[in-house]
Each structure stands twice: as structure tokens, then as C-alpha cells.
Amino acid sequence: MIQAAYDLLIGPFVEFEFMRRALIGSFALTLGAAPIGVFLLLRRMSLVGDAMAHAILPGAAIGYLVAGLSLGAMTVGGLVAGCLVAVLAGVVTRNTLLREDASLASFYIISLALGVTLVSLKGSNIDLLHVLFGSVLALDDNTLLLLASISTLTLFVVAFIYRPLVLECVDPGFLRSVSGAGAAIHLVFLCLVVINLIGGFHAMGTLLAVGMLMLPAIAARFWCSGVATMIGVSLLIGMASSVIGLVLSYHAGLATGPTIILAAGAIYIVSLLIGPHGGLIRQFAPQRHLEA
């Protein structure tokens, strides 16, 4: 029994280095993604992550055209493209009658079209697969280091801007009336989204990068109220999904990145059903009301 559990859960990680690397990589990813995902969710920007993930593509493609499948070039390219879209969208939103969703939608779709055009300029299919689906089972030292740096930076910056960030979510009008920092805070936050997406991009690919950002955070909403606890729960859910996804993909021979996201998806469905804060079962089978 114990042996079986060992073989199932621990064995793969003891036996293969690439599994250990994948585990560490996904944990690092989760560590940064948890607070970012929670704030995206609370700011009703759940789909913005998706948009930004597409916006990164042309930068990564230019990096790839210049330097081939190089970690540094693709990272820097993606960073520049993502932040450029974020800044442009922010400028348009604050100076025209367009809301943020519209300005972001227009820039990211331009960016995506540009990216696809660039990738197809020098299209060998294997590389394209890396771009689309990532390579969580082939994380080298540099990529691991990048993922760890991203999560470290994210945690420190979020800790630093936590108060204005919360205020920007709850009562942006009030923040504007007492401080001019709102726009800057928003921009810093979007840049954090971009670097976390780039981390996700290397591990999970552009299509699923946003998965580790949003699914654990959304699932966490059903388990607690309070921003800090949500970040904690979201972190636990992300780590659990990583372990489950890796083990499952190892034993069943499934593509790893998508399996990890599917594991997070499964946890989300369970949370949706039985979560104590607004879960479906609670709503359809209400408990008796209290005395006062």
C-alpha cells in the first residue's frame, strides 16, 4: 500500500531529474502567479491575462527570429512587447473615451497578428510547438533561474504596493482624490502580469500561460474571503495542481503543461461545487438560518 503510494507520487520525482526540475519550476511559477491572479480576479480583469498573453507573442517572435530558440532573447522581446501594449492601452484609456477593455483588446489583437506573421516568417513546426505549449519537462538551469527570479521579484513588488493596489481595486475614485499614484500602480501591476505570463510562457506556452495565473485564484474565491487568505489558498491550489498534473502526465503519458492546467481546472470545478463561499451546493442546499 505504502509502496504503491510511493511509486505513484514520490517515485517519479526521485527517479528523474527532469521531473524534479518540472516540479520546482511549477512551484516557482505558482508562487508569483498566486498574488497576481488574485488581484486580476478582484479587479475583474480575469480576461486581461489572456489578452496580455497574446500581446507578448510578437516580442517573443522577434527574439526568436534574431537569436533562435534563445531564452534571453525571447524573454526580453516578450517583456518589451507586453509592457508596450500595457502602456499604450493605459495611455489611450486615460486620454480618450475608450474603456480599458476596448483599448487593450485593440492593441493585443494587433500585437497577436504581428506575432503570428513574424513566427510564420521562419516557421519550423517544432519551435512553434514550444511557443504554443511550452516545455515544462525540459527546464534548464537558466529557465529555472528565470522562473525563480520572476516569482521573487513579484512577491517583493506586490508586498511593496499592496496597500495602493487594494485601494485601486476597492475605491479608485478615492485613491485618485488623495494621491496621484493610481496610474503608476496600475502600470506596475500590469508589468507584473507581463513578467509572470512570460514565466508561464516558457513552462506552459502562450496558450496556457494564463491558466496558472487565473484558475487557482478563481478556485480560491470559493474557499475564503479576504485578500491575503485568498492568495495563500490560491498558492496551495497551484502547488497541488502542479504535483497532480506532473504525476498524472508521467503515468498516463499525457502532455505535461496542459495536464497541470487540467488538474487546476478539476480543483476549480470541485471548489465551484463544494466551496463554502458561494459554492453551488451551499446555494441549492441552504443550511437553516441562525437566531440573530
Binding site: 481595486c169 475605491d171 475614485g173 474571503s225 479576504g226 485578500v227
Partner: peptide, 10 residues
């Protein structure tokens, strides 16, 4: 006031 009342804050 454009307060997001669904935001989990005390």
C-alpha cells in the same frame, strides 16, 4: 462613490 462592494475588505 465608485466602491466595489464585492471586494473582500473589512
Amino acid at each position: 462613490a465608485d466602491i466595489d462592494r464585492s471586494f473582500p475588505i473589512r
